[in-house]
């Protein structure tokens, strides 16, 4: 049996203000195994963002247990969560979130800069991290864009920089939050192709989206509605995106 990378059991998240309690998630349980490509779908307000924050160790659940790559995450302190995020999770955001005015290379190196904060043994030299960053930028087809700053890149290119950035610390999962939400559709196809390629190489990919066309690229689709798990099934008609477009035009 393949090992579970993500194990969620009876996860609930309740936001409390002075006046009201809002239940964002109630009793969510599922497992994601190594090498899976999962799309989490749901309309806005369904709680999928809250779920993404919990899976991404950006937030902790009110009740329930979350084991990520063998480590119980749900009860950790803020600083320990930062360690988990640095080592185990590769984030890809809808708005890319690259540092403005920094070069592509510098942006991709950023997660490695904070490795030292986890433990000094885990730290790597600047030269080493430059080598790793370059390797992943070549992988996403941006070898000619190493010294460009983010304002010189298209949306698709920026998202590919973000994908390279998510990979550098060799995380347990890639967590993508609406990765194609801010880019043109032909470029979105390209991003999906990269995800499928990474998945074929053995990376576990979790993608949050509200577009079924995008979700169709995943191998498994989980539906969330009103904070509850509605369906969780294998995607029988997985769309295969083509890495066909000449990459410099992206």
């Amino acid at each position: 049996m393949v090992k579970s990378i993500i194990h969620l059991s009876h996860i609930s998240k309740i936001y409390k203000t002075d006046v009201v309690e809002t239940t964002a998630l109630s009793d969510i349980s599922f497992d994601i195994k190594k090498g899976e490509f999962v799309a989490i779908m749901g309309p806005s307000g369904s709680g999928k963002s809250t779920l993404m924050h919990i899976i991404g160790a950006l937030d902790t659940p009110t009740t329930g247990s979350y084991v990520l790559d063998g480590e119980e995450v749900s009860k950790l302190t803020e600083d320990n969560l930062a360690d988990i995020r640095n080592r185990k999770i590769g984030f890809i955001f809808q708005a890319f979130n690259l540092l403005p005015r920094r070069t592509t290379l510098q942006n991709v190196m950023l997660p490695m800069f904070y490795r030292e904060a986890t433990s000094s043994a885990y730290a790597i030299s600047k030269e080493e991290s430059e080598k790793i960053a370059t390797k992943y930028l070549i992988m996403v087809g941006l070898e000619n864009r190493l010294t460009h700053t983010s304002n010189q890149l298209s949306g698709g290119q920026m998202q590919r920089v973000a994908i390279a950035r998510s990979l550098v610390n060799n995380p347990a999962i890639l967590l993508a939050d609406e990765p194609t939400g801010n880019i043109a559709s032909n470029q979105a196809e390209e991003i999906m192709a990269i995800f499928q390629k990474l998945n074929n190489e053995g990376h576990t990919v979790v993608m949050i989206t509200h577009e079924s066309e995008i979700a169709d690229h995943a191998k498994r689709i989980i539906h969330i509605r009103d904070g509850k798990l509605v369906s969780d099934e294998k995607n029988k008609k997985q769309k295969i995106a083509k890495l066909g477009i000449k990459q410099d035009t992206l």
Binding site: G56, L58, E78, D79, A82, D83, R85, N86, R87, F91, N97, L99, L110, P111, Y114, R115, A117, T118, R165, N169
Partner: peptide
């Protein structure tokens, strides 16, 4: 603030 958020998401601790 957004930059701080990103840095934290990528693993920077508060004191860092």
């Amino acid at each position: 603030t957004r930059e701080i958020g990103l840095r934290k998401a990528l693993g920077a601790k508060k004191n860092v």
